[in-house]
Design a protein around this nucleic acid. Sequence first.
DNA 1: AAATAAATTTAGACAAGCCTAAAAATATTT
DNA 2: AAATATTTTTAGGCTTGTCTAAATTTATTT
Lengths: 217, 217
Amino acid sequence: MNTLAEENYLKAIFKLSGKQKEAVSTNAIAEELETKASSVTDMIKKLTEKKLVNYQKYQGTSLTKKGHEIAVHIVRKHRLWEVFLLKKLKFQWDEVHDVAEQLEHIKSPKLVEHLDTFLCFPQYDPHGDPIPNKNGEFPKSFSAPLIDFAAGSKGKVVGVSQDNPAFLQYLDKLEIQLGSKIQVIEKIEFDQSLEVKINGKATHISSEVAKNILIKQ
Amino acid sequence: MNTLAEENYLKAIFKLSGKQKEAVSTNAIAEELETKASSVTDMIKKLTEKKLVNYQKYQGTSLTKKGHEIAVHIVRKHRLWEVFLLKKLKFQWDEVHDVAEQLEHIKSPKLVEHLDTFLCFPQYDPHGDPIPNKNGEFPKSFSAPLIDFAAGSKGKVVGVSQDNPAFLQYLDKLEIQLGSKIQVIEKIEFDQSLEVKINGKATHISSEVAKNILIKQ
DNA sequence: AAATAAATTTAGACAAGCCTAAAAATATTT
DNA sequence: AAATATTTTTAGGCTTGTCTAAATTTATTT
């Protein structure tokens, strides 16, 4: 069984290493967890000992198969709890994260599976992030940041990757909501900004905004 | 904010000190928490520092008003989660305790209150124990162990005060379930055992068993 | 390629929470 | 009331997870 601190490190490495599972730098982990690089080095050594990460001095860290499985399971729990808080307990969009951050560490296999059943096996959480099933498999159709879509592609807004109030208010102004239909008209080379149609209406958004809107085709 | 260990100490002292809030011995706390007396002394000093307990060397420990409030709040959370696990997630009677033991430490005032609302403000948990409201007040009508009832009295089984599997299996054999109607026919002076009627059917149970069945009239 | 800067690791320290063993205080016997 | 037993506390130590400061390695400039 892993400690709370270990779980948080695995989750951070998972988050930082992306789909290709690249090695993650010590400083990046330190920043993600708001701790010091020396603390990270200490913990990475323990995780190496437990065969949860691959680590070579000065060369960064990546998850082993076992470490990856644990991280995905924590992500699963986090996102299921977010759905529970939003759908069942009537939390607001931006209130769920901190509580889910605590709930994700509860240890009870039965609890997760019964919660999943109770929620009718949701595939996405309130932020539009995919929820892995109990075997750690993500739903086939992924959401991705709007900025990653080519000109011409169409999709639906399934979430955001930021819940900064100013950002959410700006989306409101642009009339971008969960479920809005969105089409990429043109990508501006110069500043990576986008011409898009939102629910049929043309508008223009910056790359900063496009990075944080999640789309599912 | 209190640590997990601190919360468990407060809960243990609350449990041991009963309604009259008597001082509790160091050894009793150590036994309750399955730890050593010396560890208890250490922690009690910290809790004294934080004004959560009253403590005089060699004279035992009692909760301050503040400590009592915190303990009651943890009990509230524990029992609400038990109801959630049983009623919503379809856990078995004897599976809820260990998970609730973890969930009770989640810190989010909003979570507790929304959970309470979601569960429609239950007054008793699956073991028949009363659930304090958000002001820390217990419901007026308490359940009591079967053994405390006089010959002739009638009531309903609202819980048990043990969740040892052998005990629960034995109850099953006696056809005693949550909600069973029970009437005390006779109390045997000699060994404190009881003649009872369970759902109309006469049977005989030992004092050991009668101590652990909770009845509400 | 040498010098400088940045990233990472090591060394040593600290708080929390636990432990064992020994000392001190309290309770119980005789 | 003295002797013995029990309870509780103290002293010192260990592990986990953190920190700062210094040393080392890698990356970037000049």
